[in-house]
């Protein structure tokens, strides 16, 4: 690459990054500003004080919300991984009548928006008495058609001979599942895990519906609460809350990135 080309490329990349990152960057900067500074439309805070962060924790029980979000997201992630991988395994390795039709039916549910199923889901959760509980927040999200689809495609790349070889040596289906199929599919599992964690973390409408006390509310509702608590919104405090809320997501992404790039199926055959 010639120098001019390099300069052009990096300038373009840098400016696009800036455009993409600007909202987050600005949120970060606002989180250090006083109320007046925000309204004046300043870009840079006068001083970097953590007052906004402190008041964010004081105004709403942010720590409880964070913990709730963490619990809900982790449980959903584990649930999605368990249910999707087991379903995908059945769709790939177990022969039964109507398997493919069932699978297409299964993924066709991806075309139904979650909001359309919200009312019946709410009624079910209400009837089960799961309002204001972790169960009501998590269990409806365990069966994820996308997750099953993703893992099915991954399992399909496992050479069928591996399964046959394990059958010949008498290894049970479940042992094959957790000793061979899962480790070989680590990359996809991590991808799906991160995906479902982040989706759960960013969930807003459902927690709003099924919770009405602070003990089980999640962060996204906390943020909204901050914004609407007072007549004149203190944007600095809200943005401080936002920064706190996006931190775990970023950490997760950085941790997962390396895993995502790992290839594991090399050398299985031939």
């Amino acid at each position: 690459m010639s120098l001019t080309k390099k300069i052009v490329t990096y300038t373009l990349l840098a400016s696009f990054t800036l455009i993409m990152m600007f909202p987050i960057l600005y949120a970060f900067l606002i989180s250090f500003m006083q109320g007046g500074e925000v309204l004046q439309g300043k870009l840079w805070p006068e001083s970097f004080s953590f007052d906004n962060y402190i008041s964010a924790f004081e105004k709403v029980p942010l720590l409880t919300y964070l913990l709730n979000s963490l619990i809900v997201s982790t449980v959903i992630m584990i649930g999605v991984l368990a249910v999707s991988s087991l379903a995908a395994f059945a769709f790939v390795f177990i022969n039964f009548k109507g398997r493919d039709i069932l699978f297409y039916l299964f993924i066709s549910t991806m075309m139904i928006p979650w909001e359309a199923a919200m009312v019946p889901n709410f009624q079910t959760v209400q009837a089960l008495g799961w309002l204001n509980s972790y169960a009501g927040l998590t269990i409806p999200f365990f069966a994820l058609a996308f997750g099953t689809f993703l893992l099915r495609q991954q399992f399909k790349t496992i050479p069928h001979e591996l399964y046959e070889a394990s059958q010949v040596s008498g290894i049970s289906r479940f042992r094959f599942f957790y000793k061979i199929a899962l480790p070989v599919s680590k990359t996809s599992m991590v991808t799906l895990g991160i995906y479902s964690f982040l989706t759960a973390w960013n969930m807003y409408l459902w927690p709003l519906l099924v919770t009405n006390n602070e003990a089980v509310r999640t962060v996204q509702i906390g943020l909204k609460q901050m914004q609407s608590q007072e007549i004149s919104t203190e944007w600095g405090v809200v943005m401080a809350g936002v920064v706190i809320v996006i931190l775990p997501t970023l950490v997760l992404l950085f941790l997962g990135q390396k895993r995502l790039q790992e290839g594991l199926t090399q050398g299985a055959i031939k």
């Binding site: 050479p159 046959e164 059958q167 010949v168 008498g170 061979i180 480790p183 070989v184 199926t265």
Partner: peptide
């Protein structure tokens, strides 16, 4: 009988080794 009940071993064309 299931494959394991037949008390045999098998070598596959592509070896079918567990990669991990």
């Amino acid at each position: 009988l299931t494959p394991s009940q037949r008390d045999l071993s098998m070598v596959f064309q592509n070896y079918a080794l567990y990669p991990h």
